[in-house]
Design a protein around this nucleic acid. Structure first.
Length: 424
RNA sequence: GGAGAGAUGGCCGAGCCGGUCGAAGGCGCUCGCCUGCUAAGCGAGUAGGGGGUGAAAACUCCCUCGAGGGUUCGAAUCCCUCUCUCUCCGCCA
């Protein structure tokens, strides 16, 4: 959520931001409503002031055994006017809030302006694509041939877009989770967190999934609970409503969770394989930082995620998302795209974003500097470190061998009972 | 699931026979004094959010004592609903 005062004072800036995101919109209605509301608020405050002072006088008069029925009658009228005004203001407030909740974050100045993913900027390419002396297969073909992925049975158990890992497939998935968590907690300074996999509506609203993107989520019937679409939601909400000592910043969390997404509107896209599932595993990195450090922290976060790919020996590139492709809550996002030889394509495997104070304002996450008065909103960031299912897919495609086996990256072998390859 | 207790400022904790209580006291923190250094001691200050005036410092008003309603001229204090926490019983991995 943007600061209503910022929107009021920088209407042009916000409108330009919306335009760059491909959502042209006139905000003068909002600004007018906002000033109307403030005017009403001022007169309400005046009435309340009158009531407060007169009520105190009544108390004193009563102590002196004086008659107060006339003043009380008058105050009852004032009370009615207060109630009316409160009602009106509450309505306007709600309308304002509803508008504000639907306005996305303002992109950072360094974000390239563009319409869609075709305007994203590749900022670096790391490593080389592997060469094969045979035709590399898709990961689902590799996995099904090895008996480690079974989409047919997953569909029987649940439905389309669910994974079923068997044997070394399940072990490799678990090894990746283990490896990523170890890397981030021991080398990158993150604290490990294992949060709830369901969250309430308040949490979903704080991080920006609600109210606008309800159709992307799975809801628990009969409860105000939702399945998490990413660990970003429970982990960012760890500090919702809190005031953090600035000395404690930056706070780094690493969390494994499964992620549940309805993938509404993606019919016919990536229908096969592990790329687009209703349920997938992810290790997420979340940061709470002082505002002036957040862009440095974004670069570090990105590096932390890249390290996973480097250690695994996977070829990838880093892309800066343009304004048109930027997520709702994000001010700046880097995507990491891993090379998938079976598909001859780069596929997103991580997304690292700086939300600035957008989520912190929705979730009321503040910090206090020692000895200083007041508080300020922290900046929040998060990034996948990495999407585990897609990483497993990348391993199957990049390290497949002519005989159908898949080489196990060296760093994973300790978690794979020393196995050098997965064989049929 | 049944019975009971509770939720107050950064933390602990009074208040809860309605009125000068946004709130005693303590801890913590900040500034000053004191002091070979440190500790202790002494004094002052110290919740958050919003509005108005002001260049600013500041001043001033309103709201907030788990959340939401209600009673009242007036609610941390009384009533109702909800959420969460704790204790006992039952059940359960």
């Amino acid at each position: 959520m943007l600061d209503p005062r910022f929107v009021r004072e920088n209407q042009q800036v916000v409108e330009t931001a919306l335009k760059n995101r491909g959502q042209e919109r006139d905000l003068s209605g909002f600004v007018a409503l906002e000033s109307e509301k403030r005017a009403l608020q001022t007169s309400l405050d005046g009435l309340r002031h009158e009531r407060n002072t007169v009520s105190q006088q009544i108390g004193k008069l009563k102590k002196e055994k004086k008659d107060t029925t006339d003043i009380q009658r008058k105050m009852r009228e004032v009370g009615d006017r207060i109630k009316d005004l409160e009602q009106t203001i509450a309505e306007k407030d709600e309308a304002l809030k509803a508008l504000l909740m639907e306005i996305p974050n303002v992109p950072h100045a360094s974000v390239p302006i563009g319409a869609d993913e075709n305007d994203n900027q590749v900022c670096r390419t790391v490593g080389e694509p592997p060469s094969f002396d045979f035709e590399p297969k898709n990961h689902w073909d590799v996995g099904e041939a090895l008996g480690i992925l079974d989409f047919e049975r997953a569909a029987k158990i649940t439905g389309a877009r669910f994974p079923l890992y068997m044997g070394d497939g399940a072990r490799l998935e678990r090894a990746l989770i283990w490896f990523m968590l170890e890397l981030h907690t021991t080398r990158h300074g993150y604290k490990e967190v294992l949060p709830p996999f369901m969250v309430n509506s308040a949490s979903m609203t704080a991080t920006g999934q609600l109210p606008k993107f309800e159709e992307d989520l799975f809801k628990i019937s009969g409860w105000d609970y939702w399945l998490v679409p990413t660990a970003e939601v429970p982990v960012t909400n760890i500090h919702a409503g809190e005031i953090i000592d600035e000395d404690a910043l930056p706070i780094y969390y690493a969390a494994y969770t499964p992620c549940f997404r309805s993938e509404a509107g993606s019919y016919g896209k990536d229908t096969r394989g592990l790329i687009r599932q209703h349920q997938f595993n992810k290790v997420e990195l979340v940061k709470f930082v002082a505002p002036e450090t957040s862009y440095d922290e974004l670069e570090k976060l990105l590096e932390n995620a890249e390290t996973v790919l480097k250690e695994l020996g996977l070829h990838y590139r880093v892309v800066t998302l343009c304004t048109g492709d930027l997520g709702f809550s994000s001010a700046k996002t880097y995507d990491i795209e891993v090379w998938m030889p079976g598909q001859q394509k780069y596929r997103e495997i991580s997304s690292c974003s700086n939300f600035e104070d957008f989520q912190a304002r929705r979730g009321n996450i503040r910090a206090r500097q020692k000895g200083k008065k007041g508080t300020r909103l922290v900046h929040t960031l998060n990034g996948s470190g990495l999407a585990v299912g897609r990483t497993l897919a990348a391993i199957l495609e990049n390290f497949q061998q002519a005989d159908g086996s898949v080489a196990v990256p060296e760093v994973l072998r300790p978690y794979m009972q020393g196995k050098e390859a997965i064989t049929p």
